[in-house]
Design a protein around this nucleic acid. Structure first.
Lengths: 212, 212
DNA sequence: CGGGCCATCAACCGATCGGCTGATACCCCT
DNA sequence: AGGGGTATCAGCCGATCGGTTGATGGCCCG
Protein backbone atom coordinates (compact mmCIF):
# COMPACT_ATOMS: atom_id res chain seq x y z
CA UNK A 1 0.00 0.00 0.00
CA UNK A 2 2.45 2.51 1.22
CA UNK A 3 5.00 1.50 -1.39
CA UNK A 4 3.10 2.36 -4.52
CA UNK A 5 3.32 5.85 -5.92
CA UNK A 6 0.15 7.82 -5.39
CA UNK A 7 -1.03 9.91 -8.33
CA UNK A 8 -2.60 13.27 -7.68
CA UNK A 9 -4.70 15.94 -9.29
CA UNK A 10 -4.60 19.41 -7.75
CA UNK A 11 -7.69 21.58 -8.04
CA UNK A 12 -7.59 25.16 -6.81
CA UNK A 13 -8.34 28.47 -8.41
CA UNK A 14 -5.33 30.10 -6.79
CA UNK A 15 -2.21 29.56 -8.88
CA UNK A 16 -0.11 30.19 -5.81
CA UNK A 17 -1.77 27.38 -3.93
CA UNK A 18 -1.43 25.04 -6.86
CA UNK A 19 2.26 25.78 -7.12
CA UNK A 20 2.74 25.34 -3.40
CA UNK A 21 1.04 21.99 -3.35
CA UNK A 22 2.81 20.77 -6.45
CA UNK A 23 6.13 21.74 -4.88
CA UNK A 24 5.34 19.94 -1.67
CA UNK A 25 4.40 16.70 -3.33
CA UNK A 26 7.25 16.88 -5.82
CA UNK A 27 9.67 16.65 -2.92
CA UNK A 28 8.34 13.23 -1.96
CA UNK A 29 8.87 10.38 -4.44
CA UNK A 30 5.81 8.66 -3.04
CA UNK A 31 3.60 11.11 -4.87
CA UNK A 32 3.14 12.04 -8.48
CA UNK A 33 1.18 15.11 -9.45
CA UNK A 34 -0.47 14.32 -12.76
CA UNK A 35 -1.98 17.73 -13.32
CA UNK A 36 -3.75 20.80 -12.08
CA UNK A 37 -7.15 22.31 -12.58
CA UNK A 38 -8.31 25.81 -11.75
CA UNK A 39 -12.00 25.03 -11.51
CA UNK A 40 -14.59 22.33 -10.95
CA UNK A 41 -15.46 21.77 -14.56
CA UNK A 42 -11.86 21.41 -15.61
CA UNK A 43 -11.31 19.09 -12.66
CA UNK A 44 -13.97 16.66 -13.77
CA UNK A 45 -12.49 16.55 -17.25
CA UNK A 46 -8.97 15.96 -15.99
CA UNK A 47 -10.05 13.21 -13.64
CA UNK A 48 -11.55 11.38 -16.59
CA UNK A 49 -8.42 11.82 -18.63
CA UNK A 50 -5.67 11.38 -16.04
CA UNK A 51 -7.37 8.96 -13.65
CA UNK A 52 -5.53 10.03 -10.46
CA UNK A 53 -5.69 8.16 -7.20
CA UNK A 54 -6.51 11.25 -5.22
CA UNK A 55 -7.95 14.65 -6.07
CA UNK A 56 -6.97 17.54 -3.84
CA UNK A 57 -9.96 19.78 -4.21
CA UNK A 58 -10.57 23.33 -3.08
CA UNK A 59 -14.14 24.36 -2.48
CA UNK A 60 -15.39 27.78 -3.49
CA UNK A 61 -14.10 28.30 -6.95
CA UNK A 62 -15.37 30.72 -9.57
CA UNK A 63 -16.94 28.20 -11.90
CA UNK A 64 -19.57 26.50 -9.85
CA UNK A 65 -17.43 25.31 -7.01
CA UNK A 66 -15.97 22.14 -5.68
CA UNK A 67 -19.10 20.55 -4.26
CA UNK A 68 -20.69 20.33 -7.65
CA UNK A 69 -17.55 18.78 -9.08
CA UNK A 70 -17.41 16.22 -6.28
CA UNK A 71 -21.02 15.30 -6.82
CA UNK A 72 -20.38 14.91 -10.51
CA UNK A 73 -17.41 12.65 -9.91
CA UNK A 74 -19.42 10.54 -7.50
CA UNK A 75 -22.23 10.29 -9.99
CA UNK A 76 -19.84 9.05 -12.63
CA UNK A 77 -18.44 6.52 -10.23
CA UNK A 78 -14.93 7.89 -10.56
CA UNK A 79 -12.21 5.78 -8.98
CA UNK A 80 -10.44 8.84 -7.57
CA UNK A 81 -10.82 9.72 -3.92
CA UNK A 82 -11.55 13.36 -3.30
CA UNK A 83 -9.75 15.09 -0.47
CA UNK A 84 -11.17 18.51 0.19
CA UNK A 85 -8.53 21.05 1.08
CA UNK A 86 -9.94 24.42 1.94
CA UNK A 87 -9.66 27.41 4.19
CA UNK A 88 -13.10 27.38 5.67
CA UNK A 89 -14.80 25.01 8.01
CA UNK A 90 -18.37 26.18 7.99
CA UNK A 91 -21.17 23.66 8.10
CA UNK A 92 -22.45 25.06 4.85
CA UNK A 93 -19.21 23.93 3.24
CA UNK A 94 -18.25 20.75 5.04
CA UNK A 95 -21.54 18.92 5.15
CA UNK A 96 -22.47 19.31 1.49
CA UNK A 97 -18.94 18.29 0.52
CA UNK A 98 -19.08 15.13 2.60
CA UNK A 99 -22.56 14.35 1.36
CA UNK A 100 -21.39 14.82 -2.19
CA UNK A 101 -18.84 12.09 -1.64
CA UNK A 102 -15.61 13.62 -0.40
CA UNK A 103 -13.34 11.11 1.26
CA UNK A 104 -11.70 13.65 3.52
CA UNK A 105 -11.77 17.24 4.57
CA UNK A 106 -8.67 19.14 5.55
CA UNK A 107 -8.09 22.77 6.36
CA UNK A 108 -5.33 24.57 4.55
CA UNK A 109 -3.54 25.38 7.74
CA UNK A 110 -2.85 21.70 8.28
CA UNK A 111 0.84 20.85 8.77
CA UNK A 112 2.64 19.44 5.78
CA UNK A 113 3.05 16.00 7.28
CA UNK A 114 -0.61 15.78 8.13
CA UNK A 115 -1.33 16.51 4.54
CA UNK A 116 0.90 13.68 3.32
CA UNK A 117 -0.62 11.28 5.80
CA UNK A 118 -4.08 12.36 4.78
CA UNK A 119 -3.42 11.83 1.11
CA UNK A 120 -2.08 8.32 1.75
CA UNK A 121 -5.08 7.56 3.90
CA UNK A 122 -7.44 8.90 1.28
CA UNK A 123 -5.73 6.81 -1.39
CA UNK A 124 -6.60 3.74 0.65
CA UNK A 125 -10.14 4.92 0.95
CA UNK A 126 -9.92 5.83 4.58
CA UNK A 127 -11.73 8.94 5.74
CA UNK A 128 -9.62 11.81 6.99
CA UNK A 129 -11.00 14.82 8.72
CA UNK A 130 -9.43 17.81 10.37
CA UNK A 131 -10.01 17.59 14.09
CA UNK A 132 -12.14 20.72 13.99
CA UNK A 133 -14.22 19.40 11.15
CA UNK A 134 -14.53 15.99 12.73
CA UNK A 135 -15.98 17.21 15.96
CA UNK A 136 -18.34 19.42 14.10
CA UNK A 137 -19.51 16.56 11.93
CA UNK A 138 -20.10 14.29 14.85
CA UNK A 139 -22.42 16.72 16.50
CA UNK A 140 -24.08 17.48 13.21
CA UNK A 141 -24.77 13.80 12.67
CA UNK A 142 -25.84 13.13 16.19
CA UNK A 143 -28.21 16.04 16.10
CA UNK A 144 -29.43 15.77 12.54
CA UNK A 145 -31.68 18.74 13.02
CA UNK A 146 -32.93 18.72 16.59
CA UNK A 147 -30.12 20.88 17.80
CA UNK A 148 -29.76 22.35 14.37
CA UNK A 149 -33.19 23.52 13.38
CA UNK A 150 -34.47 24.09 16.86
CA UNK A 151 -33.99 27.69 17.66
CA UNK A 152 -35.79 28.76 20.78
CA UNK A 153 -38.61 31.26 20.41
CA UNK A 154 -36.41 34.01 21.73
CA UNK A 155 -33.61 33.11 19.38
CA UNK A 156 -35.98 33.20 16.46
CA UNK A 157 -37.14 36.65 17.44
CA UNK A 158 -33.57 37.81 17.54
CA UNK A 159 -32.52 36.37 14.20
CA UNK A 160 -35.64 37.76 12.62
CA UNK A 161 -34.66 41.24 13.71
CA UNK A 162 -31.11 40.64 12.58
CA UNK A 163 -32.44 39.82 9.13
CA UNK A 164 -34.07 43.22 9.09
CA UNK A 165 -30.76 44.92 9.67
CA UNK A 166 -31.39 45.69 13.30
CA UNK A 167 -28.26 46.22 15.39
CA UNK A 168 -27.76 44.41 18.66
CA UNK A 169 -28.47 47.54 20.62
CA UNK A 170 -31.69 48.15 18.75
CA UNK A 171 -32.74 44.55 19.21
CA UNK A 172 -32.16 44.96 22.91
CA UNK A 173 -34.48 47.94 23.07
CA UNK A 174 -37.00 46.19 20.90
CA UNK A 175 -37.17 43.12 23.10
CA UNK A 176 -36.74 44.88 26.43
CA UNK A 177 -33.53 43.03 27.25
CA UNK A 178 -29.88 44.05 27.53
CA UNK A 179 -27.45 44.06 24.68
CA UNK A 180 -25.46 41.38 26.50
CA UNK A 181 -28.43 39.06 26.34
CA UNK A 182 -28.88 39.70 22.66
CA UNK A 183 -25.28 38.73 22.09
CA UNK A 184 -25.74 35.59 24.15
CA UNK A 185 -28.74 34.59 22.08
CA UNK A 186 -26.84 35.24 18.89
CA UNK A 187 -23.85 33.21 20.04
CA UNK A 188 -26.23 30.32 20.65
CA UNK A 189 -27.82 30.80 17.27
CA UNK A 190 -24.43 30.74 15.58
CA UNK A 191 -23.63 27.50 17.34
CA UNK A 192 -26.89 25.87 16.40
CA UNK A 193 -26.72 26.92 12.79
CA UNK A 194 -23.04 26.16 12.43
CA UNK A 195 -22.02 29.63 11.33
CA UNK A 196 -19.76 32.38 12.53
CA UNK A 197 -21.60 35.62 11.89
CA UNK A 198 -25.01 37.17 11.55
CA UNK A 199 -24.98 37.29 7.77
CA UNK A 200 -24.40 33.56 7.47
CA UNK A 201 -26.94 32.93 10.20
CA UNK A 202 -29.57 34.75 8.18
CA UNK A 203 -28.64 32.72 5.11
CA UNK A 204 -28.93 29.38 6.93
CA UNK A 205 -32.16 30.52 8.54
CA UNK A 206 -33.59 31.11 5.09
CA UNK A 207 -32.30 27.79 3.80
CA UNK A 208 -34.01 25.98 6.65
CA UNK A 209 -37.23 27.86 6.42
CA UNK A 210 -36.80 29.57 9.75
CA UNK A 211 -37.05 32.86 7.91
CA UNK A 212 -38.86 33.83 4.75
CA UNK B 1 -60.85 71.10 10.00
CA UNK B 2 -58.34 72.49 12.35
CA UNK B 3 -60.95 73.33 14.90
CA UNK B 4 -62.35 69.94 15.58
CA UNK B 5 -60.76 67.75 18.23
CA UNK B 6 -58.79 64.90 16.71
CA UNK B 7 -59.21 61.53 18.38
CA UNK B 8 -56.23 59.22 18.64
CA UNK B 9 -55.28 55.65 19.30
CA UNK B 10 -51.72 54.97 20.39
CA UNK B 11 -50.17 51.66 19.43
CA UNK B 12 -46.73 50.75 20.73
CA UNK B 13 -45.36 47.84 22.66
CA UNK B 14 -43.22 50.09 24.82
CA UNK B 15 -45.20 51.39 27.80
CA UNK B 16 -42.77 54.26 28.09
CA UNK B 17 -43.44 55.40 24.58
CA UNK B 18 -47.18 55.12 25.07
CA UNK B 19 -47.00 57.25 28.20
CA UNK B 20 -44.83 59.78 26.50
CA UNK B 21 -47.14 60.16 23.55
CA UNK B 22 -50.23 60.27 25.70
CA UNK B 23 -48.65 63.01 27.79
CA UNK B 24 -47.72 65.03 24.74
CA UNK B 25 -51.16 64.94 23.25
CA UNK B 26 -52.89 65.52 26.58
CA UNK B 27 -51.21 68.90 26.77
CA UNK B 28 -52.96 70.05 23.63
CA UNK B 29 -56.75 70.38 23.73
CA UNK B 30 -56.88 69.76 20.00
CA UNK B 31 -56.24 66.09 20.58
CA UNK B 32 -58.02 63.39 22.49
CA UNK B 33 -56.32 60.08 23.13
CA UNK B 34 -59.06 57.47 23.18
CA UNK B 35 -56.90 54.54 24.11
CA UNK B 36 -53.69 52.58 23.79
CA UNK B 37 -52.76 49.21 22.40
CA UNK B 38 -49.57 47.25 22.95
CA UNK B 39 -49.76 45.15 19.81
CA UNK B 40 -51.23 44.87 16.34
CA UNK B 41 -54.07 42.53 17.20
CA UNK B 42 -55.23 44.66 20.08
CA UNK B 43 -54.92 47.72 17.85
CA UNK B 44 -57.33 46.36 15.27
CA UNK B 45 -59.86 45.54 17.97
CA UNK B 46 -59.61 48.97 19.54
CA UNK B 47 -59.96 50.76 16.24
CA UNK B 48 -63.21 48.94 15.68
CA UNK B 49 -64.47 49.84 19.12
CA UNK B 50 -63.16 53.38 19.58
CA UNK B 51 -63.20 54.58 15.98
CA UNK B 52 -60.35 57.11 16.30
CA UNK B 53 -59.48 59.64 13.63
CA UNK B 54 -55.81 58.74 13.65
CA UNK B 55 -53.85 55.71 14.75
CA UNK B 56 -50.28 56.30 15.84
CA UNK B 57 -48.73 52.96 15.05
CA UNK B 58 -45.35 51.53 15.86
CA UNK B 59 -44.00 48.85 13.56
CA UNK B 60 -42.11 45.87 14.90
CA UNK B 61 -44.18 44.64 17.76
CA UNK B 62 -44.14 41.22 19.37
CA UNK B 63 -47.50 39.99 18.11
CA UNK B 64 -47.21 40.07 14.39
CA UNK B 65 -46.24 43.64 13.90
CA UNK B 66 -47.71 46.85 12.68
CA UNK B 67 -47.73 46.16 8.97
CA UNK B 68 -50.12 43.28 9.38
CA UNK B 69 -52.39 45.44 11.52
CA UNK B 70 -52.35 48.23 8.96
CA UNK B 71 -53.20 45.82 6.19
CA UNK B 72 -56.04 44.43 8.24
CA UNK B 73 -57.44 47.89 8.90
CA UNK B 74 -57.21 48.75 5.23
CA UNK B 75 -58.94 45.53 4.33
CA UNK B 76 -61.77 46.33 6.68
CA UNK B 77 -62.05 49.81 5.22
CA UNK B 78 -61.47 51.45 8.57
CA UNK B 79 -62.07 55.18 8.67
CA UNK B 80 -58.98 55.79 10.79
CA UNK B 81 -55.83 57.13 9.19
CA UNK B 82 -52.72 55.28 10.20
CA UNK B 83 -49.62 57.29 10.97
CA UNK B 84 -46.59 55.08 11.39
CA UNK B 85 -44.27 56.27 14.12
CA UNK B 86 -41.16 54.19 14.40
CA UNK B 87 -37.45 54.23 15.01
CA UNK B 88 -36.28 52.62 11.84
CA UNK B 89 -36.31 53.75 8.28
CA UNK B 90 -35.29 50.69 6.36
CA UNK B 91 -36.91 49.93 3.05
CA UNK B 92 -38.06 46.64 4.45
CA UNK B 93 -40.15 48.58 6.93
CA UNK B 94 -41.26 51.69 5.13
CA UNK B 95 -42.35 50.29 1.81
CA UNK B 96 -44.53 47.48 3.15
CA UNK B 97 -46.12 49.91 5.60
CA UNK B 98 -47.00 52.39 2.88
CA UNK B 99 -48.22 49.62 0.63
CA UNK B 100 -50.38 48.32 3.43
CA UNK B 101 -52.11 51.65 3.58
CA UNK B 102 -50.32 53.88 6.05
CA UNK B 103 -51.15 57.54 5.57
CA UNK B 104 -47.84 58.75 6.94
CA UNK B 105 -44.50 57.63 8.18
CA UNK B 106 -42.58 59.47 10.87
CA UNK B 107 -39.43 58.63 12.73
CA UNK B 108 -39.51 58.77 16.49
CA UNK B 109 -36.82 61.41 16.62
CA UNK B 110 -39.19 63.89 14.97
CA UNK B 111 -39.68 67.12 16.92
CA UNK B 112 -42.82 67.40 18.96
CA UNK B 113 -44.35 70.08 16.76
CA UNK B 114 -43.73 68.07 13.64
CA UNK B 115 -45.62 65.26 15.24
CA UNK B 116 -48.61 67.48 15.99
CA UNK B 117 -48.59 68.85 12.49
CA UNK B 118 -48.31 65.38 11.07
CA UNK B 119 -51.25 64.08 13.06
CA UNK B 120 -53.42 66.97 11.92
CA UNK B 121 -52.36 66.39 8.35
CA UNK B 122 -53.05 62.69 8.64
CA UNK B 123 -56.49 63.39 10.08
CA UNK B 124 -57.27 65.29 6.91
CA UNK B 125 -56.03 62.44 4.85
CA UNK B 126 -52.88 64.14 3.71
CA UNK B 127 -49.75 62.10 3.42
CA UNK B 128 -46.90 62.94 5.77
CA UNK B 129 -43.44 61.54 5.47
CA UNK B 130 -40.22 62.15 7.30
CA UNK B 131 -37.80 63.85 4.96
CA UNK B 132 -35.49 60.87 5.10
CA UNK B 133 -38.28 58.46 4.32
CA UNK B 134 -39.66 60.67 1.59
CA UNK B 135 -36.46 60.82 -0.38
CA UNK B 136 -36.04 57.12 -0.02
CA UNK B 137 -39.51 56.45 -1.25
CA UNK B 138 -39.11 58.65 -4.26
CA UNK B 139 -36.09 56.77 -5.44
CA UNK B 140 -37.73 53.47 -4.62
CA UNK B 141 -40.70 54.39 -6.75
CA UNK B 142 -38.65 55.79 -9.56
CA UNK B 143 -36.57 52.68 -9.67
CA UNK B 144 -39.23 50.08 -8.95
CA UNK B 145 -36.74 47.28 -9.29
CA UNK B 146 -34.31 48.13 -12.07
CA UNK B 147 -31.87 49.65 -9.65
CA UNK B 148 -33.21 47.45 -6.91
CA UNK B 149 -32.97 43.93 -8.19
CA UNK B 150 -30.09 44.43 -10.53
CA UNK B 151 -26.93 43.47 -8.75
CA UNK B 152 -23.96 43.27 -11.03
CA UNK B 153 -22.28 39.91 -11.49
CA UNK B 154 -19.46 40.91 -9.22
CA UNK B 155 -21.83 42.14 -6.57
CA UNK B 156 -23.71 38.88 -6.67
CA UNK B 157 -20.49 36.97 -6.17
CA UNK B 158 -19.70 39.07 -3.15
CA UNK B 159 -23.09 38.78 -1.50
CA UNK B 160 -23.07 35.06 -2.12
CA UNK B 161 -19.83 34.73 -0.18
CA UNK B 162 -21.17 37.01 2.52
CA UNK B 163 -24.11 34.65 2.92
CA UNK B 164 -21.62 31.89 3.60
CA UNK B 165 -20.10 33.79 6.46
CA UNK B 166 -17.02 34.88 4.58
CA UNK B 167 -15.31 37.98 5.95
CA UNK B 168 -14.38 40.86 3.68
CA UNK B 169 -10.74 39.92 3.84
CA UNK B 170 -11.48 36.34 2.88
CA UNK B 171 -13.72 37.45 0.07
CA UNK B 172 -10.89 39.60 -1.21
CA UNK B 173 -8.55 36.61 -1.32
CA UNK B 174 -11.23 34.47 -2.87
CA UNK B 175 -11.91 36.88 -5.70
CA UNK B 176 -8.35 38.09 -6.17
CA UNK B 177 -9.22 41.68 -5.35
CA UNK B 178 -8.43 44.02 -2.48
CA UNK B 179 -10.49 44.32 0.65
CA UNK B 180 -11.24 47.92 -0.29
CA UNK B 181 -12.91 46.75 -3.45
CA UNK B 182 -14.98 44.24 -1.56
CA UNK B 183 -16.20 47.00 0.69
CA UNK B 184 -17.03 49.16 -2.28
CA UNK B 185 -19.08 46.37 -3.82
CA UNK B 186 -20.88 45.83 -0.56
CA UNK B 187 -21.67 49.51 -0.15
CA UNK B 188 -23.24 49.42 -3.58
CA UNK B 189 -25.18 46.30 -2.70
CA UNK B 190 -26.50 47.93 0.45
CA UNK B 191 -27.65 50.89 -1.57
CA UNK B 192 -29.36 48.77 -4.19
CA UNK B 193 -31.11 46.56 -1.68
CA UNK B 194 -32.04 49.38 0.65
CA UNK B 195 -30.32 47.97 3.70
CA UNK B 196 -27.61 48.99 6.09
CA UNK B 197 -25.64 45.83 6.82
CA UNK B 198 -24.63 42.48 5.44
CA UNK B 199 -27.14 40.49 7.43
CA UNK B 200 -30.07 42.46 6.06
CA UNK B 201 -28.56 42.33 2.60
CA UNK B 202 -28.53 38.54 2.76
CA UNK B 203 -32.14 38.55 3.90
CA UNK B 204 -33.29 40.79 1.07
CA UNK B 205 -31.24 38.77 -1.41
CA UNK B 206 -33.13 35.68 -0.34
CA UNK B 207 -36.47 37.47 -0.50
CA UNK B 208 -35.75 38.53 -4.05
CA UNK B 209 -34.46 35.21 -5.20
CA UNK B 210 -30.94 36.47 -5.71
CA UNK B 211 -29.81 33.84 -3.24
CA UNK B 212 -31.25 30.47 -2.35
C1' DC C 1 -32.67 16.47 43.68
C1' DG C 2 -29.32 17.05 40.20
C1' DG C 3 -28.70 18.08 35.42
C1' DG C 4 -29.90 20.39 31.25
C1' DC C 5 -32.00 24.03 28.60
C1' DC C 6 -33.43 28.60 28.48
C1' DA C 7 -33.19 33.49 29.53
C1' DT C 8 -30.98 37.00 31.62
C1' DC C 9 -26.83 40.13 32.60
C1' DA C 10 -21.71 42.05 32.97
C1' DA C 11 -17.23 43.57 31.43
C1' DC C 12 -13.43 43.30 28.43
C1' DC C 13 -11.02 43.08 24.00
C1' DG C 14 -9.48 42.43 19.47
C1' DA C 15 -11.33 42.02 14.93
C1' DT C 16 -14.38 43.52 11.63
C1' DC C 17 -17.46 46.40 9.52
C1' DG C 18 -19.45 50.45 7.35
C1' DG C 19 -19.07 55.35 6.08
C1' DC C 20 -16.54 58.80 3.86
C1' DT C 21 -13.64 60.88 0.43
C1' DG C 22 -11.31 60.57 -3.51
C1' DA C 23 -9.11 58.44 -7.41
C1' DT C 24 -8.14 55.65 -11.90
C1' DA C 25 -9.74 53.11 -15.67
C1' DC C 26 -12.62 50.57 -18.93
C1' DC C 27 -16.64 50.18 -21.65
C1' DC C 28 -20.94 51.32 -23.75
C1' DC C 29 -24.15 54.45 -25.40
C1' DT C 30 -25.48 58.92 -27.09
C1' DA D 1 -16.77 64.11 -26.48
C1' DG D 2 -19.14 63.29 -22.43
C1' DG D 3 -21.97 60.74 -19.21
C1' DG D 4 -23.11 56.61 -16.65
C1' DG D 5 -22.31 52.10 -14.95
C1' DT D 6 -18.83 48.88 -13.39
C1' DA D 7 -14.55 47.51 -11.29
C1' DT D 8 -10.61 48.55 -9.09
C1' DC D 9 -7.89 50.64 -5.05
C1' DA D 10 -6.45 53.67 -0.60
C1' DG D 11 -6.68 55.41 4.05
C1' DC D 12 -9.02 56.85 8.08
C1' DC D 13 -12.23 56.33 11.88
C1' DG D 14 -15.89 55.43 14.90
C1' DA D 15 -19.30 51.92 15.63
C1' DT D 16 -20.38 47.35 15.95
C1' DC D 17 -19.62 42.69 16.40
C1' DG D 18 -18.12 38.25 18.21
C1' DG D 19 -15.47 35.62 21.68
C1' DT D 20 -14.66 34.76 26.38
C1' DT D 21 -15.59 34.10 31.08
C1' DG D 22 -18.51 33.95 34.62
C1' DA D 23 -22.79 34.27 37.00
C1' DT D 24 -27.98 34.07 38.41
C1' DG D 25 -32.56 32.22 38.26
C1' DG D 26 -36.50 29.67 36.33
C1' DC D 27 -38.27 25.48 34.42
C1' DC D 28 -38.82 20.69 33.34
C1' DC D 29 -37.46 15.86 33.29
C1' DG D 30 -35.99 11.75 35.17
Amino acid sequence: MTDRTITLLIVDDHPVVRDGLRGMFASDPGFDVLGEAAGGVEAVELVQRLDPDVVLMDLRMPDGGGVRAIAELTRRGARAKVLVLTTYDTDSDTIPAIEAGATGYLLKDAPRDDLFTAVRAAAEGRTVLSPAVASRLVSAVRNPSPAAGALSAREREVIELVARGTSNREIARELFISEATVKTHLTHVYGKLGVKDRAAAVAVAYERGILG
